[in-house]
Write a protein that binds this DNA or RNA. Structure first.
Lengths: 204, 204
DNA sequence: GTCTATACAGCGATAGAC
DNA sequence: GTCTATCGCTGTATAGAC
């Protein structure tokens, strides 16, 4: 078989990209759908039309691949948050845009990568644990700033430190994804998210 | 080796029980800690001091074992809810007792069995899916009744159908567990749960 | 009801040719 | 950078003795 043939997987990893990127794209989708312990080098390789050995050339071990997945995911998420900061006028709009980020992931039939990994935490290679917690810490910090801004300008109401409410929201959104996905019902997620925001005295 | 020796596992399955029950106890703990796809017949057998073949005698396949786990878990959960209904004076107390159910699970280092399985939904044997969704449906129905009662007697405030808020709470609690567990911090869960309840205008 | 032994598939990983 | 071939291990599951 020649090297020009490329299998088109159901997850559609950006076709013009280089191999390491296509590997990350495919593996990312598989982890979000099936979990870190339930996807294999064989699946990724098969979807990409290469061999497992070739995959090992780019990512020598599953733990390394996993770490790369988290790091890229966190980086992209951070970029989205920066984009929201730059594009949305006020804290209420930022919060709604944040929720829309989750919505978009779920509508592809995926769980949040880090939410999925959180469920598998006890079985995860050690190197994945710190970067995983950092993802949640970064989200919390960003959300806390938005909430603080919303409270001081009167758009939101909540008691106690903003970080506490930020944690509650992150958990609430991750959990809403977790449960909406088995039902195959994105709308279910959106209503739960709206309920979460209404607890802050936001209209939706 | 004689048949009288029994390995004492770290999960401590009630020692006086019969073998099928001890199997369920051990497997349940493992699924809640590691996930359905990340525990094995070998681990359960090892912890119980029996062989995998013997395990297969009681539960011929992993799917059957999984189904038995969900059914027993749902049944026990239902009993707990009935106990709350019988023992707690009002809806606010019932809600707090419901949260304490989750707290108790998490404090053992476990995820909710069904929350864990929800994360693995796409890889689950087909026979587990319906019973899993039923668990959430039953929780929702119970919670909705409590919420409705709380709203009509003025102890709680929320807009729209009680079932919607019930779903939001279930997701919120599952997600709070999901994230508090990697941090090894039960208190983190409790604060998030309190934040969830405060959105209903409950003091904690 | 528990055991030993085994079948068979899949996994992650490595060596070495091209 | 990709391949073929293979190693060593673990997984679920089954057959048959006791």
């Amino acid at each position: 078989m020649g090297g020009t043939m490329s299998a088109k997987g159901s997850t559609a990893p950006s076709p013009g990209s280089d191999t390491p990127t296509r590997i990350l794209d495919t593996a990312e989708a598989l982890v979000q759908q099936r979990g870190f312990n339930s996807f294999s080098y064989g699946e990724v390789a098969g979807e990409l039309g290469i061999t497992r050995a070739s995959l090992h050339y780019h990512y020598p071990g599953k733990a390394i691949l996993g770490r790369s997945l988290i790091e890229r995911y966190a980086e992209r998420f951070g970029e989205e948050l920066a984009r929201i900061d730059a594009g949305e006028p006020g804290p209420a709009e930022k919060l709604r845009a944040y929720v829309a980020l989750y919505s978009g992931v779920l509508s592809e039939g995926r769980m949040c990568l880090c939410g999925m990994l959180a469920a598998e935490f006890l079985t995860l290679p050690e190197e994945l644990r710190d970067p995983l917690l950092r993802f949640f810490d970064d989200n919390e910090a960003w959300l806390a700033a938005v909430l603080e801004e919303g409270r001081s300008d009167g758009a939101m109401q909540f008691a106690g430190p903003a970080g506490e409410t930020a944690r509650m929201l992150i958990g609430g959104l991750e959990g809403a994804m977790l449960i909406a996905r088995p039902y195959g019902d994105t709308e279910r997620f959106r209503r739960a998210a709206a309920g979460l925001l209404s607890g802050l005295a936001m209209d939706a």
